[in-house]
Amino acid sequence: MIQLKPGTVAMIIGARTSAGRVNIGKSVSLFALCQPGERLLNPINGVVTELPGEALRALWLVTGDIQSVDGQAGFAFVRPEHLMPLTPDALPADELAKIME
């Protein structure tokens, strides 16, 4: 199983919305896994950011050369399954072995 944790570098490999698709293929840093309705201090703009309570699942707040669904630069909320870690310690052992071969 892929281990996602804050500080991990990952690539965005999918998106459900057309606004999110512009970020596919970009590398990001995982900041925090946010639950619906949770608020946190956004590291990019210093503003309290909230994952809407209507969200159906927890999403990662990620940072990088990306944009949010409303066009703000530097961060976005992304589903865990749309992230592929690029840090070797976050990869499953069998995938890491394939890369090392």
Rank of each mutant, 00 (worst) to 15 (best):
V48C: 02
E50R: 09
G25E: 08
G37S: 11
K26N: 14
A97W: 00
D70C: 00
R79N: 12
L51K: 07
Q35P: 00
L83R: 06
Q35K: 14
A32N: 08
Q35W: 04
P6H: 10
T87G: 02
V9D: 10
A10L: 06
G7R: 12
P88D: 13
S18I: 09
G20D: 13
S29H: 09
L4V: 11
L30F: 09
T8Q: 07
I12K: 04
V69I: 11
L4N: 12
L59H: 05
E54G: 05
G64E: 01
A55E: 15
R21F: 04
L41T: 09
I24D: 01
P88G: 10
A93Q: 10
E54P: 01
M1I: 08
Q72P: 00
P80L: 00
A93H: 06
A90H: 09
P92N: 10
V48E: 14
I12V: 15
Q67W: 02
P36M: 03
S18C: 04
A76I: 01
A90M: 12
L4H: 15
V47T: 09
E50Q: 15
M1G: 14
P80F: 00
S29W: 00
K98V: 12
K5E: 15
N23M: 10
A19I: 00
L4G: 13
P88I: 06
K5G: 01
F77M: 01
P85Q: 07
I24L: 04
M84K: 10
A19E: 14
G53Y: 03
A73I: 11
S29N: 11
L33W: 00
L83V: 05
S18K: 12
R21Y: 05
N42G: 08
R79E: 15
L4W: 03
P85A: 07
T8Y: 00
E81W: 01
A15E: 05
A73M: 03
P52I: 05
R16D: 10
N23T: 12
D65A: 13
C34D: 00
D65H: 08
T8F: 04
V47C: 01
G7L: 04
I13S: 14
D70T: 04
L4K: 12
G53D: 12
V9W: 03
P88C: 08
L40V: 15
V48Y: 04
D65K: 10
N42A: 09
S68K: 03
I24Y: 04
G74L: 05
E81A: 13
A19L: 07
T8K: 11
G53V: 06
D70R: 09
I66F: 03
A19G: 02
I24W: 06
I99G: 07
D65G: 04
Q35H: 11
Q72F: 03
E54S: 15
M100E: 12
P52T: 12
I12Q: 10
L30Y: 11
A19P: 00
L61M: 07
H82Q: 13
G25C: 08
L96V: 05
V22M: 06
E38D: 12
F75N: 01
V69F: 10
A76S: 04
D89A: 13
E95S: 07
L40C: 13
C34E: 07
D89M: 01
V28G: 02
S68G: 15
Q72V: 02
V62F: 08
G7K: 07
E101A: 13
